[in-house]
Simulated scan of single mutants.
Amino acid sequence: MTNKIVIYTTCGSEEDANRIARHLVEMRVAACVSIAPGVRSTYRWQGAIEESQEWGLTIKSRRDLFARLADEVRKVHPYEVPELIAVPIVDGLISYLDWMDAELESPIDLP
């Protein structure tokens, strides 16, 4: 098991997706954010079943950065309750995992 995680979220527009992705990478809480258009979501919100076309974001980070990443997402995400789900990266190409570490905030730099 690695200390790396993948976090999923969605948003309602390409502009929001690009803004969120850039912000997370600039803050060094995400090494990479992949953006996928055409996500169709069906969910219950405030008592009604909703359906919406969304943009999916796949965020690559580290477990120790999740709380900070979540704070940063809440600052820039337009949704009242953004989806933010983290899953562990069990294993991966060592050179990619090392690259992630080089691009993320160092654990000794954390507040």
Rank of each mutant, 00 (worst) to 15 (best):
L84R: 05
A17L: 05
L24S: 12
R22C: 07
A86V: 01
D98C: 01
V6M: 15
M1N: 11
R40H: 15
W55P: 03
E72N: 09
F66D: 02
L24T: 11
S41M: 06
D109V: 00
E54W: 06
K60A: 09
E105I: 10
D98R: 13
L57S: 09
E83T: 05
I35F: 04
P88V: 04
P78Q: 03
S95Y: 02
P78K: 03
R28N: 08
R40W: 04
Y43C: 07
P82D: 12
P107Y: 03
A102K: 15
E51G: 12
L97C: 10
E83C: 08
D101M: 02
C32N: 12
E14F: 00
K60W: 01
R28F: 02
D91Q: 11
M27Y: 05
A31K: 06
V33L: 01
D109P: 00
G12E: 14
E72V: 04
Y43K: 06
R62N: 11
S13D: 09
A48M: 08
V73F: 01
E103S: 11
N18S: 12
Y43M: 06
D64G: 02
E15Y: 00
H23M: 07
K60T: 09
P78W: 01
S41E: 10
Y43E: 10
E80Q: 12
Y79A: 05
D98E: 15
I59Y: 07
R62M: 07
V6H: 01
E50F: 00
I85M: 15
A86T: 04
V81S: 11
C11N: 08
C32G: 07
R22W: 00
L93P: 02
L93V: 14
L104K: 03
C11L: 01
T10V: 01
R63E: 15
E103P: 00
I5P: 00
H23E: 14
Y43H: 08
I108W: 10
L84K: 02
R44S: 14
Y79P: 07
N18P: 00
A21G: 14
M1A: 14
Q53M: 03
I5T: 09
E15G: 13
D101N: 14
R68K: 13
C11M: 03
C11A: 02
I59M: 06
S95K: 13
A21I: 06
S34D: 13
S61G: 08
A21R: 08
I5D: 10
A30Q: 05
D16M: 00
R63C: 06
H23F: 13
D64S: 10
T10E: 09
Y79G: 03
E54Q: 10
V81K: 05
V6T: 14
I49R: 04
Q53G: 09
W55V: 09
A36G: 02
H23K: 13
H77R: 08
A21V: 04
I89T: 11
L57G: 09
A17Y: 08
A86N: 02
G47P: 13
E14I: 05
V6D: 03
N18E: 14
I35A: 04
V76S: 04
M100E: 13
V25Y: 05
